[in-house]
Design a protein around this nucleic acid. Structure first.
Length: 833
RNA sequence: GCGGGCGUGGCGGAAUUGGCAGACGCGCUGGACUUAGGAUCCAGUGACUUCGGUCGUAAGGGUUCAACUCCCUUCGUCCGCACCA
């Protein structure tokens, strides 16, 4: 008799034993195929939430299953430990960011260990430790040396609350991704990574990622936003200047009646020098600048502009076009100026009708005549033929696009151009708790990299933390002042730190070689372990982290530090954990668990009450991994009940199991036992396929529940000991990836060694074969009867048998049998009229 | 506006290649055991029904012997991007 199931006792026991035995330590082993299972590492906020539990439970099943299936599995964990919250703690509580962070990490490691996750803790990385950020700085220098890191003054996104700039990817609908406050534009000199150099490859290589969800690939595709078109120049005779524009609709170029400039366009200043309307123009520009980013970039806001009084010449037809300054042209896309074709673009139409600018029709549907005076909107369809377009009149629009580009190229005033929505990655942050940018500014020699042998540039401790203060590092005397590495003269350090997304863009390489003190990682080790075979995390990183990591991988490949193109072969994006609650209006609604809504369930409480196995089981069973998971307290109890049921049935089987032997004659089984054995092997097949091919943990678990239900048939009658052994052993092996503690405990009562060290179960296809199958009789597509027939009976035999069934005769009496369709082992359908 | 999901019992979900809709779990109902049950075990549980059946996978239409599954239209809902010229 085995004791009552008590997760509180057995879980701690096994966690300690696994740790003492170094059970999950791995090294390079060329005798097995390698497998790298990775979950996105957490920010050390201090406490695990259910989203973490879900993420790591999924990863743990993958790692444990792959290990049992014979792979050499790398499954590491670490912490993305730089970032704002630590600094906020310093500002509001006077705690040192490092103390705050390390104590949070300590608590989170304790919580992670209480989940029974199969991590190789020897490989843990913490991005805020000098032995890690030294290499983050080293990689910055590598980017710099390759011409991929540069400093420039630019209009950048500024979050006042966080007191720092942000990358474009970190601005969500005009608001800061972290604190949700409005983002402003500021002109600052900042460091950028030249991700745009890789725009084409980042886009094209999405095709090399069949193991990624289409959703994520589409999002990246849209973010990169490639477009093809024509860039050409228009003369501005009054200024002796040229004005460049980019268009994806060269076919409408003959319809230009005005040019629209962004207020930031350099030509605006030149115009102001000669235009009598200079004061008005300047006032307009200032007014646009004072608008928030949301106001300015919303497609709904009113289009406004001011005519400069200056004209330019359309090189295609010599027409004069008014130059306007407007609020709806983006300064940092294309050339910061657009051609205004009111007849072909709805925004231009609205603008032109508002200000009484001419409209020239250049495109109309084939075989139809459009009349401007009857039109109430621009003609924006993507088909038609040209009018009023000189020698291109009458040409089909797609042909015309090509011909007009060729014309511009032949005449020398324009060229074919590819544009991207993607901008360079702004990596400077005016914050303390990040990796210092390893650059020195010398009064004489200018910008200098900190020599490699002087890395890391350590974070100083003599800094002041103030809300909204610029770059805390600049308040440190010991940090700021230094000597120029080139001339030895007076110099000062860069006081900005790097975006934490840089730290997380290469951590999955460091796990392959975490203690290297000569390089970020050894090339051979990374080439052995990486790329990550299965990456698991939240959809919120679809662009940010996943795009940056792809960029890093490509740069490091070009730097010959590794030999592959993509960091993550397969990607699984898990859904959120949601829970119902009653809102302030008394409605029952479901939403992501959050403190402010009060619908949070604490993992620690659940683990304390039911154990980690129950928490893991419920979370994996309640929903497919890529969908949102609806938390249910009753559901958790159901999972706990199931584990108790497993415990009891193994207990009932245990006497028999001890008497059984592994190899035996299956012909000695009685009918009930044959049936159990068939269910067992069907279960093995299904669970294996669900784990190996489908990521379908919920159905794998439901199949295991069916097996346990089938075993209960024998709770009150004797079972063949050999079958008891076969079934019990297979059940525990299959449960082990999901619920490792109870599987290990029950295994230890009955068998030798650790269940985790066992090889995965194979199914016996002969056990699954049934001699007789039940097939469905349909008359005109409706189920009318069921009948047992020998398995694999061929079509004609089934048809013959079906027509002789009394039920078939009864229901087709007096009707003409038109057709009989038989599907072996499934059904037979008689069509009668 | 553009792009991508999703829509199945009271609830979470299953149906992998077009072949028995609702596996498994929750909840609920009844029974057994019991001093007791919020433990355990067994059975039932889509709706309607004149108990023959009929209807049923967001709505409508189509293809097919056969549709949750394929095609068209519509609606709802969630997510991403959004004045990108």
């Amino acid at each position: 008799m085995i004791d009552k199931y008590s997760p509180q006792e057995i879980e701690k026991k096994w966690q300690d034993k696994w740790e003492a035995d170094n059970a999950y330590k791995v090294d390079i082993d060329n005798s097995k195929p390698k497998y790298y299972a990775l979950e996105m590492f957490p920010y050390p906020s201090g406490n695990l939430h259910m989203g973490h539990v879900r993420n790591y439970s999924i990863g743990d099943v993958v790692a444990r299953y792959k290990t049992m299936a014979g792979y050499n599995v790398l499954h590491p964990m670490g912490f993305d430990a730089f970032g704002m919250p630590a600094e906020n703690a310093a500002i509001s509580h006077g705690v040192k960011p490092s103390d705050w962070t390390f104590s949070n990490i300590k608590n989170m490691i304790r919580q992670l260990k209480s989940m029974g996750l199969a991590y190789d803790w020897d490989r843990e990385v913490e991005t805020c430790r000098a032995d890690y950020y030294r290499w983050t700085q080293w990689l910055f220098e590598l980017f710099y040396k390759r011409g991929l890191a540069y400093k420039k003054e630019a209009s950048v996104n500024w979050c006042d609350k966080c007191g720092t700039v942000l990358a474009n990817e970190q601005v969500i609908e005009g608001k800061c991704w972290r604190c949700d406050s409005d983002v402003q534009k500021k002109n600052l000199a900042q460091w950028f990574f030249k991700i745009t150099d890789y725009a084409d490859e980042l886009l094209a290589d999405l095709e090399k990622l069949p193991g990624w969800p289409n959703r994520v690939k589409t999002m990246q595709e849209n973010w990169i936003g490639r477009s093809e078109g024509l860039e050409f120049e228009l003369d501005v005779p009054e200024l002796g200047e040229k004005l460049a524009v980019y268009t994806t609709r060269p076919d409408t170029a003959f319809g230009i009646t005005f040019m629209a400039l962004a207020p930031e366009h350099p030509l605006v200043e030149k115009i102001c020098k000669v235009s009598p309307k200079a004061a008005e123009i300047k006032a307009f520009c200032e007014r646009v600048h004072s608008q928030s980013e949301i106001e300015r970039t919303s497609s709904e806001s009113e289009k406004e502009g001011i005519f400069t009084g200056i004209y330019c010449i359309n090189p295609f037809n010599g027409n004069k076009a008014q130059i306007w300054v407007t609020n709806y042209v983006l300064a940092d896309y294309g050339t910061g100026a657009i051609m205004g074709v009111p007849s072909g673009d709805q925004r231009d139409w609205m603008f032109a009708t508002k200000y009484g600018i001419d409209i020239i029709l250049t495109l109309q549907p084939e075989g139809q005549q459009l009349k401007l005076e009857e039109m109430t909107a621009a003609y924006v369809e993507k088909d038609g033929e040209l009018v009023n377009s000189g020698k291109f009149t009458g040409m089909e629009m797609h042909k015309a696009m090509k011909a007009i580009i060729e014309e511009a190229e032949a005449q020398g005033f324009g060229k074919r151009k590819v544009n991207y929505r993607l901008r360079d990655w702004l990596i400077s942050r005016q914050r303390y708790w990040g990796a210092p940018i390893p650059v020195i500014y010398c009064d004489k020699c200018g910008e200098q990299l900190v020599p490699e042998e002087d890395l890391p540039v350590l974070l100083p401790e003599d800094v002041e933390f103030k809300q909204g203060a610029l770059s805390p590092l600049s308040t440190s005397k010991s940090f700021n002042e230094c000597k120029c590495p080139k001339c030895g003269g007076h110099a000062h350090r860069e006081t900005d730190t790097m975006d934490t997304f840089i730290c997380s863009s290469w951590y999955y390489f460091r796990y392959a070689d975490p203690h290297n003190d000569k390089l970020p990682f050894d090339r051979d080790k990374v080439n052995y372990w990486n790329p990550v075979d299965q990456y698991i995390g939240g959809i919120e990183h679809a662009i940010l982290h996943l795009l940056y990591s792809r960029f890093f991988t490509k740069v490091l490949r070009d730097a010959k530090m590794l030999d592959f193109d993509e960091p993550f072969t397969n990607l699984m994006t898990q859904g959120m954990v949601i829970k119902g609650y009653t809102d302030k209006d008394g409605h029952y609604v479901k939403a992501k668990m959050s403190k402010s809504l009060g619908n949070v369930v604490s993992p620690e409480e659940i683990i304390e009450k039911y154990g980690a196995d129950t928490a893991r089981l419920f979370i994996l069973f309640a929903s497919p991994v890529d969908r949102d998971l609806d938390w249910s307290d009753e559901g958790v109890q159901g999972s706990f009940r199931f584990l108790n049921r497993v415990w009891r049935i193994i207990d009932i089987f245990s006497e028999a199991i001890k008497k059984g032997s592994i190899s035996y004659d299956v012909n000695s089984l009685n009918a009930d036992e044959v049936e159990l054995r068939r269910i067992l092997h069907k279960t093995i097949k299904k669970v294996t396929e669900d784990l190996r091919d489908r990521f379908a943990f919920n159905t794998a678990i439901s199949t295991l529940m069916e097996l346990v239900n089938a075993m209960h048939v024998f709770q009150s009658k004797p079972i063949n000991p050999n079958l008891a052994l076969e079934t019990g052993q297979a059940l525990l092996k299959m449960l082990a990836p999901f619920v490792p503690h109870i599987a290990e405990e029950l295994w230890s009562h009955l068998f030798e060694g650790s269940v985790y060290k066992q090889s995965w179960v194979e199914f016996d296809s002969t056990a699954i074969v049934e001699e007789e199958v039940e097939i469905v009789l349909q008359i005109n597509g409706k189920v009318r009867d069921r009948v047992k027939v020998p398995a694999n009976l061929d079509k004609s035999a089934i048809e013959k048998a079906a027509l002789e069934l009394p039920r078939a005769k009864e229901l087709t009496e007096g009707k003409k049998i038109v057709k009989v369709i038989a599907v072996p082992n499934k059904l037979v359908n008689i069509v009668a009229k």
